[in-house]
């Protein structure tokens, strides 16, 4: 039973598809920057979903063009919400990228599991405990490969 391919279905499928692709990307990626990009995709999907929540076929943008009788207008509230959500997304992404720059300078990698391992090692070293085996990669006590001597950037190692 395949439903008819209406514009309605296409738009909803796009919104939900983008959200799903983004979320799947976050879960499946091993590179931290790709995870952030996947989040951007997912956010685009939900923003489309929000706009759709107030959309009408027979209506114009909610701006008065003349006094007197008005044509039907789309719901202005979701548009305002999307504006807010987009700006919030931009702020979070910029912050994410700046943290990623620092991590890359310190750990010389952006691989998700390697960063997690090094973080666990760092936390354990600060606390002075034997390292807990990582929850996500229970492969026993893997010795960490040494950070390559030739760093990607010599200048930004410490701020």
């Amino acid at each position: 039973m395949i439903p008819a391919l209406t514009p309605e279905l296409i738009l909803y499928a796009t919104a939900i598809g983008l959200t799903t692709i983004g979320l799947a990307g976050v879960v499946l990626s091993v590179h931290l920057f790709r995870m952030v990009l996947s989040l951007v995709i997912a956010e685009a999907g939900v923003n489309l979903m929000l706009v759709l929540a107030g959309y009408r076929w027979d209506a114009v943008a909610p701006i008065l063009t003349s006094l007197g009788e008005q044509p039907a207008m789309v719901d202005p509230v979701p548009q305002a919400m999307v504006l807010t959500a987009i700006v919030i997304g931009v702020g979070v992404q910029a912050l994410a990228v700046s943290i990623l720059i620092r991590i890359r300078q310190r750990y010389a990698t952006l691989d998700r599991w390697e960063v997690a391992e090094r973080m666990d090692a760092d936390i354990a070293a600060t606390a002075g405990t034997p390292r807990d085996v990582s929850q996500e990669a229970p492969l026993g006590e893997r010795p960490l490969p040494p950070i390559p001597a030739k760093r990607v950037d010599p200048s930004g190692s410490e701020s």
């Binding site: 738009l11 939900i16 598809g17 959200t19 799903t20 799947a24 509230v77």
Partner: peptide
């Protein structure tokens, strides 16, 4: 991937219940 695909279909089925093109526009 299978999980994500299933999730997508489920969400689509649920969102299909929305009345598209004729939103309630209560406060709108």
């Amino acid at each position: 991937l299978l999980f994500a695909g299933g999730l997508g279909f489920m969400l689509l089925a649920i969102a299909g219940g929305l009345d598209f093109g004729a939103p309630p526009m209560l406060i709108g």
